[in-house]
Amino acid sequence: MMTASLSWIRAEPWGIHVVPADCWIDPARPVERALITHGHADHARGGHGETVATPETLAIMDLRYNTRDGAVAAHYGETMALGGGVSATWLPAGHVLGSAQILLEHVGERVVVTGDFKRRPDPTCAPFAVTPCDVLITEATFGLPVFLHPPVEEEVGKLLIARDANPDRCVLVGAYALGKAQRVIAELRRAGYHDPIWLHGALERMCRLYEELGVELGELRLVADARKDELRGAVVLCPPSALSDRWSRRLPDPLTAMASGWMRVRQRARQRGVELPLIISDHADWQELTQTIEDIDPAQTWVTHGREEALLRWCQLRQRQARALALVGYEDEDD
């Protein structure tokens, strides 16, 4: 195994440094050249000299931070030379629209940085591509064996049952503005729900962008435009922070739901004051994380962030080399 060198790729607390090409992956501080895996705020920050990402991620970043200058588009499957003898290939990660894994190759060694990813089908983005490599740099947001996300159909079914059982209330679903909200809407449509879905204002622009990029979401309306009575028996989406905000007081007796992988743990739901926990996550669960390591079978596994201890233990039990990178600044509480 070619694991001796690898000195060309370094993990610093604020990001992964590709040394010979002097560029960074998802850096937490402004750098000259950044390779961005996806548009979530903790991975994609403004202020870089050059930003390389998929066209969808660039569009998302443009919407959020007006980062038009220095944007370089990289399509799925595309390989580009980064300089210093390093090449990068963009591959789908299945996390949110535009999310990518980055395959780095240098002196015959292959390193895959997954960014955030999941393995389950998602109608709003391209599926994860399993890519053989020497070093797998993975996330571990849900890196504990208690995290098993049930089939999304079951969870969406729960939502629809709650809606039918409460014709005088509305079901208010807290969902992360980028990715989760659109996935919940798309899954509702897939389950045959075609009523208008009502949005908190903070979700509107991202939903419109998804539609512009070819993801169909059906009829969406703004809560701000609704008469209170119209919202009885309706499904309303808002960012998680708005669930217990004064904003929700305008809704007719909302039944509070939240779409997140954390909802698997009862006390997490209770802390949020959630009555209807929906275990829907855009991250790999324990099964997917371990399955991915087995599928790819890398010589080494590096864990960027999340509950890395358990994943390292799992690797140790299977005589797999692994280490934690302890990157800072990646938030995961809202997924």
């Binding site: 504990l144 064996p145 208690v146 743990v265 009862r266 358990a310 233990r313």
Partner: peptide, 20 residues
């Protein structure tokens, strides 16, 4: 070890066992 890490995170033994 995986049990202990899970228990520490979940904060409740019954729930940890029910999930694991």
């Amino acid at each position: 070890v995986l049990y202990a890490l899970s228990r520490d995170y979940v904060g409740d033994s019954a729930e940890t066992v029910s999930l694991l």
